[in-house]
């Protein structure tokens, strides 16, 4: 059977706060899946539930088809990095990896392999307490790789990495997916995932808002909307609405037109003699698509300015 993470109908409350509200998704092998959502969307809680650290009030999380607690040698099923700071500062990085290896009956050679893989090198013999956040992230990734697992789950692995580190991490995650591993990477910054993730699980308020490929998400967010700039706003709206378009005012002299391709808009306006300054097809960035999608899911934000479509 394929090594995946399957999350189904997770609910969890912390006191009066709803952390998870029906979280469900499946992580596919051979892909980097971005697990995105604003802070407080339930990403970390979901990851803790997957690892059997937190108990959900309802729902199931399976790793390799089993609840985490049932896994034998769990580190060889799934490698996880939740918090790069979760280590004893007085212990060297190598010894941190060593005790983890011993817990699964793994050898010292494997420890040295992942130290190389994560690019820790000679720094591995230094006390982990003196590490920069970036070095800790590398150590966390090394720990996740210890069991050579078919599934990896990393919470905000790019945090604290320098630009070179980010490039390295992206390439590394891509190479893991290319080997056929299922890689779940959380981030609250979509831009970090733009060139890394194949698939996205977008969360907000404890549930999945979208479970889609990156390409589809951008296309969906862009829609076939056309941005139109004109002084004759109401005239243009009438013409385009009659032709079957949906028109929304976005600014004093800007309209957003849906349902009509840009060429058709130009033709309609020209035929009706409506002057316009600009007609352009809208192309959303992943960031915009994400913002669009999670607008309602953001817990705290400035009072939105909305104008209804007439």
């Amino acid at each position: 059977m394929e090594a995946t993470i399957e999350v189904a109908g997770l609910h969890k409350r912390f006191g009066s706060t709803v952390a998870l509200d029906g979280m469900s998704f499946v992580v596919q092998p051979g892909k980097v899946t971005g697990f995105v959502g604003p802070n407080g969307a339930g990403k970390s809680t979901t990851m803790r539930v997957i690892l059997g650290l937190d108990t959900p009030d309802q729902g199931t999380a399976l790793v390799d088809g089993q609840p985490y607690a049932k896994l034998r040698r769990p580190l060889s099923h799934i490698g996880a990095l939740l918090d790069a700071g979760a280590l004893q500062p007085g212990r060297s990085a190598r010894n941190h990896l060593l005790w983890l290896a011993h817990s699964q009956g793994m050898t010292v050679q494997r420890v040295d392999e992942v130290i190389e893989q994560a690019g820790l090198g000679t720094a591995a013999r230094r006390k982990a307490g003196g590490y920069s956040l970036g070095m800790r992230q590398r150590l966390g990734i090394a720990a996740a790789m210890l069991g050579d697992p078919p599934i990896l789950m990393l919470d905000e692995p790019f945090n604290g990495l320098d630009p070179e580190g980010i490039v390295w991490a992206r390439a590394f995650l891509r190479s893991l997916a290319a080997q056929g591993r299922a890689v779940l990477v959380s981030s609250h910054l979509m831009s970090e995932l733009q060139d890394t993730a194949d698939h996205l699980v977008v969360t907000g308020r404890g549930r999945v808002i979208a479970d889609t490929s990156v390409a589809e998400l951008i296309a969906a967010a862009s829609g076939d909307r056309v941005t139109l700039r004109t002084r004759e706003r109401s005239q243009a709206m009438t013409v385009l609405a009659q032709a079957g378009g949906t028109v929304a005012t976005t600014d004093r002299d800007t309209l957003s037109v849906g349902g009509l391709p840009a060429e058709r808009v130009v033709t309609l306006l020209t035929e009706a003699g409506v002057p316009f300054a600009e007609v352009s097809a809208h192309r959303a960035s992943l960031e915009e698509a994400y913002m669009e999608m999670t607008r309602d899911a953001v817990e705290f934000r400035a009072q939105p300015v909305q104008e209804a479509t007439p």
Partner: peptide, 14 residues
């Protein structure tokens, strides 16, 4: 389509 990753058989117990 990429074949799911299979780790080489590892010795060891927990």
């Amino acid at each position: 389509t990429i074949a799911p990753y299979r780790a080489p058989q590892q010795a060891g117990q927990d």
